[in-house]
């Protein structure tokens, strides 16, 4: 039930009136578009950012830099193992 998925912001809408026109984002993942509320995010997202979406709300902005560092470290480890095996990565 705590399923949440990263979706890319394609548009920010609303914000003129917190009650009648609250701030929302149009988000996209593989062509699937949704409108989500931004009440819970602690940083204002920009178009192009990835948001983590749960139950119609963005619950966080994804840290793209951290994701790349994490992947780079795992790729480095994979290359190192391949070298130990005597293969060229």
């Amino acid at each position: 039930m705590c399923l949440a998925i990263p979706m890319r912001v394609v548009e920010i809408q609303g914000g003129k009136d917190p009650l009648l026109d609250p701030e929302r984002a149009i988000v996209d993942a593989d062509g699937l578009r949704k409108e989500v509320r931004l009440d819970l995010v602690d940083r204002q997202p920009q178009v192009g950012d990835y948001l983590i979406i749960h139950a119609g709300f963005a619950i966080n902005c994804l840290d793209a830099e951290n994701a790349e560092i994490n992947l780079a470290l795992m790729r480095e480890l994979a290359d190192e193992m391949a070298r130990e095996d005597g293969e060229t990565p």
């Binding site: 990263p6 994701a67 992947l71 480890l77 994979a78």
Partner: peptide, 20 residues
């Protein structure tokens, strides 16, 4: 989907399994 597919990469999975 971005930020999901890269984290399913077979080569990285194999590496981590070997490490474990």
């Amino acid at each position: 989907m971005k930020y999901m597919d890269e984290f399913r990469d077979r080569r990285l999975v194999t590496t981590l399994v070997r490490q474990i």
